[in-house]
């Protein structure tokens, strides 16, 4: 193993890791937004919204994220959407993650016993009051863990933007493999940083999950 080489290039990997972290956070934010809207649509009283929500989930979960990214980044200009690679990465991955999060959020909401809504309604709360005072606070607690799983997948999915040349961890590893012919060392550097990011995120999710549980 070429330790010298690793010591020489690791600062570039750190910079790249920072890009991966930024990508992950922004993607998660957009994903949560899309997921919330998607879940609201899927649980709507209006059949049109339910259909749109279901179509969103099916189409974005049914096709590769890489292709979605390519359509947005390479195909976007054809329909007047001009994005730089980083923007396209965040938007493409965010919308994709949102489709998965839609199902997570919806799943948590529908798993709340229907007696809870009934009890709230019998007290005179409106549908919406029952939702935000009784259903959502309980569903939110159930969501933390599965959203953490979505987050874990999302961090790994940020590697896809290497294919549109965003200089993040995987792209950096690929470039240095090409120039140094040391695939193992470069993998080790990038892999270690990914695992640190994922580990820290996992701890944060576990902390949050403990924090929101009712004692």
């Amino acid at each position: 193993m070429d330790i010298d080489l690793m010591m020489r290039v690791y600062p570039f990997f750190l910079d790249a890791a920072w890009v991966t972290i930024q990508l992950s956070l922004l993607t998660a934010l957009l994903g949560l937004t899309c997921g919330t809207l998607g879940a609201a649509a899927r649980l709507s009283r209006l059949a049109v919204l339910r259909f749109l929500g279901a179509a969103y989930v099916s189409l974005f979960r049914g096709t590769p994220a890489l292709i979605q990214l390519f359509i947005l980044y390479f195909g976007g200009p054809q329909i007047g959407i001009q994005l730089d690679a980083f923007e396209a990465g965040v938007i493409g991955l965010g919308i994709n993650a949102g489709a998965y999060m839609t199902e997570t959020i919806r799943g948590a909401i529908i798993s709340i016993d229907k007696g809870q809504r009934e009890a709230a309604r019998t007290l005179g709360l409106s549908q919406w009051q029952a939702t935000y005072k009784v259903i959502l606070p309980q569903a939110a607690r159930l969501m933390v863990r599965p959203l953490g799983v979505n987050m874990n997948m999302l961090i790994k999915a940020t590697a896809l933007v290497a294919a549109i040349s965003v200089v993040e961890l995987t792209y950096t590893a690929q470039r240095y493999i090409g120039s140094t012919y040391k695939p193992f060392e470069m993998f080790l550097l990038a892999g270690l940083l990914y695992m640190i990011i994922i580990y820290v995120t996992g701890r944060a999710v576990a902390w949050l999950d403990r924090k929101v549980q009712i004692t």
């Binding site: 790994k156 999915a157 940020t158 590697a159 896809l160 290497a162 294919a163 961890l169 995987t170 590893a173 690929q174 493999i177 012919y181 040391k182 695939p183 193992f184 993998f187 990038a190 892999g191 990914y194 695992m195 994922i198 580990y199």
Partner: peptide, 22 residues
Amino acid sequence: EWVFMGTPLLLQLFLIYFGLVQ
């Protein structure tokens, strides 16, 4: 196992493809 689950597939593909050549 832990490494495989904690890193992106794309990175693993690079390792396998170029690593085998190496």
